[in-house]
């Protein structure tokens, strides 16, 4: 995905200061972790490597100028065309509330920073961040449950929404409807 995906107006779209600052500090501290970044448009994000994710998250949480103390959402996006799965983290900060820059972007309803990790589809392993933000725990379990991303380094990775013995991960694009589950038909009997 490129910066051109968002084409509003003819002049160059404005850079997002919140993401820029996080990116600069990340590049300084962990230059190997950052793969790519989109700093303009409606959804700026920083792409990091799976190995560097934990370091990046710790920096985002603990650095005095960043202080992202809450993991808002963890999402898995299945992209079979690229043979990849994207894991997207949206982080917000409550500790930075007096910060002008953060609040200025907050006025546009965008006070968050997004991290992306791309992993191969046949081996979707991402290190956990539930030890960085406790709230990510359930989000990771849900991402595993529905998209099948395996989070490593955490104590247990169980399904959370679906029953334990449910076949497959429904939000994979190639997932197929089972015929029945424990004797209860998923397709109604009249239609069979």
């Amino acid at each position: 995905m490129t910066n051109e995906s968002d084409s509003q107006g003819s002049e160059a779209p404005p850079e997002d200061p919140v993401t820029l600052r996080a990116l600069a500090l990340l590049r300084k501290a962990h230059p190997d972790a950052v793969v790519d970044a989109v700093t303009t448009g409606r959804h700026p994000y920083i792409e990091v490597t799976a190995d560097g994710l934990c370091d990046a998250c710790l920096l985002l949480r603990d650095h005095d100028e960043l202080l992202y103390d809450c993991c808002h959402l963890v999402t898995g996006v299945d992209r079979p065309d690229d043979q990849q799965i994207e894991v997207v983290y949206h982080l917000v900060s409550y500790a930075r509330l007096p910060d002008d820059e953060y609040r200025k972007r907050a006025e546009k309803n965008d006070p968050w920073v997004a991290l992306k990790v791309r992993v191969p589809r046949d081996k979707p392993e991402v290190p956990t961040v539930s030890n960085v933000w406790t709230g990510a725990d359930w989000h990771e379990r849900e991402t595993y449950d529905l998209v099948g991303v395996i989070f490593t380094g955490r104590e247990e990775l169980r399904r959370i929404l679906l029953p334990e013995d449910w076949p497959g991960h429904p939000l994979r694009k190639d997932w197929e409807f089972p015929v029945e589950y424990h004797g209860v038909p998923i397709v109604p009997p009249e239609a069979q």
Binding site: L161, L162, P170, F177, V184, P185, I186, V187, P188, P189
Partner: peptide, 20 residues
Amino acid sequence: VGGGPYVKHGYHVVQGVDLV
């Protein structure tokens, strides 16, 4: 009654409680 709005794509919804 019969799965309601989830009848077609709702994989986790029983198509009517009368199956149970």
